[in-house]
Amino acid sequence: MLVSEIDMITPSSLPECLMQLSKEGRIHRLIAGGTDAAVRMKEGKWRPEIWINIKNLHELRYIEESEDCIYIGPLTTHTDIIHSPLLQRKADVLVDAAREVGATQMQNMGTIGGNIGTASPAGDTLPALYVLGARLELTSLSTKRIIPIEEFILGPGRTVLKENEMITKILIKPQKPNEIGIFQKLGPRKAQSISIVNVAISLTLDQDLKCREGKIAFGSVAPTIIRARKCESMLPLGTLNDELIRNIAKIAWKEVMPITDGRATATYRRDMASALLERGLYRLIRRWNNH
């Protein structure tokens, strides 16, 4: 398929978009911010017959809260997330992660729905969504289902999304006042980089720095984002002092199964799973003490 032969249609409403998605006998793909899609088109990897351009479906761009649930529209950009007072208060780890995506230009264009749909093991918002217990609403012309993000992603670039479906809503649990989160990323440089390892942490803390429960999710160290369940189970073992933090961090390398690629070796990635968890917990405690 030549780029010049690809068509593009721009539906003006969600129903129209779902209608387009339901058309059979052709290869189509959604394009929103284009930060992944345009690159892959250029590389020759994504050459659908038709781009369905949803960038201007403003009805899918929102951040709302009701009845102990935060709803995020899939066309919400990373910049929207960074600037949302609601998310800053009740989903700090997601705000943190959105800040680490590429650089400002990509944060302006890239959408959270796109980051989820691309399902890269290195996707920066994904570990944050994992620790926030995100669920996704998938809609087709005739169906609607809600599934946890863990079940949505099957492998690198592979999801359960059907040809005629799209992500129409992201649901996350708002953090309680005694919950605090952090996102840590190690890339080859500070900006414009793809994660070598990343980790999202969200903890529920008591006054005396005892952790009641916590969630930890790593990116770039397995075919999908993975939760570090063993580390999580050790979080409530005592006051989160330097020694406990070091001990928990040491477990992390056992929970990950990374590969070697151009960015780093598997051994380094394993070491960095521990290092980022340690650094993240230190920084998180410092942040907790400071507010």
């Binding site: 650089a103 080859p188 440089r189 500070k190 900006a191 414009q192 980089s193 793809i194 151009g262 960015r263």
Partner: peptide, 26 residues
């Protein structure tokens, strides 16, 4: 940061995604 990696004659770092140059933040 910088190194154009070549393995057995083939380039492994082919654009600025993998070839890391300093930005204003560095």
């Amino acid at each position: 940061y910088e190194d154009v990696l070549i393995e057995n004659g083939y380039h492994k770092t082919r654009n600025f995604t993998d070839y890391i140059i300093p930005t204003i933040r560095e």
